[in-house]
């Protein structure tokens, strides 16, 4: 779990850890199911150690971690502002797969077309999962939007696999 995400979720007001988790779950929908409870608390602990968060003890039994109220420190606030302004974007690592095909063909490790095929099946399976999940979501929910993004990326990947297949078929018949 990215630290900045957790920080940003606290930017509006101090919250309990369980409130934070619920908010994340809402935004992620079924994707959030994979996120276990510990993950959030581990991240919170790291952030606290780094001085980006401060814990406001709640009145009653203070020591239980899920009763702690977390708030941003000024450093934390600055970090969130920086993050919002960032334009970084996750890079799809296509080079790896591309080189895998080339290596497999060059060294005779495997048929590139088989690799493409297996990969496609895997991507289709993922697409199917994402698609099913998207269909189960109420329209216009936060999670549905996220799932649509995933579906569209997978479609793009599948299209690239199609191009790979065409290209390698051509190379095989050409040589």
């Amino acid at each position: 779990m990215q630290q900045e995400v957790v920080l940003a979720m606290l930017a509006k007001e101090p919250s309990h850890g369980y409130q934070l988790r619920a908010r994340l779950r809402d935004a992620l929908g079924p994707l959030g199911d994979a996120m276990n409870a510990g993950q959030v608390y581990v991240t919170l602990a790291r952030l606290e150690k780094a001085g980006l968060l401060a814990v406001e003890k709640s009145a009653d039994d203070a020591d239980r971690s899920d009763r702690k109220v977390y708030a941003l420190t000024p450093d934390g606030q600055q970090r969130v502002a920086e993050w919002i302004a960032e334009v970084g974007w996750p890079r799809p690592d296509l080079a790896e797969f591309h080189l895998k095909l080339i290596a497999a063909a060059w060294a005779g490790l495997a048929d590139p077309l088989t690799i493409v095929d297996t990969q496609r099946r895997e991507l289709l399976r993922r697409l199917r999962d994402a698609q099913r999940a998207a269909m189960a979501e109420p329209k216009r929910s936060d999670a549905a939007l996220l799932l649509e993004g995933i579906v569209l990326r997978l479609q793009a990947d599948l299209r690239w696999l199609e191009a790979c297949e065409k290209n390698w078929t051509h190379r095989r018949s050409g040589s």
């Binding site: 779990m1 992620l28 079924p30 994707l31 959030g32 199911d33 994979a34 996120m35 996750p90 099946r121 289709l124 399976r125 993922r126 199917r128 999962d129 994402a130 099913r132 999940a133 996220l146 995933i150």
Partner: peptide
């Protein structure tokens, strides 16, 4: 290709959670 039934239950993998 038969995309066997049921989800893989690993949706999280889709966004690297």
């Amino acid at each position: 290709t038969r995309l066997t039934g049921g989800t893989t239950g690993q949706l999280g993998a889709l966004i690297g959670l």
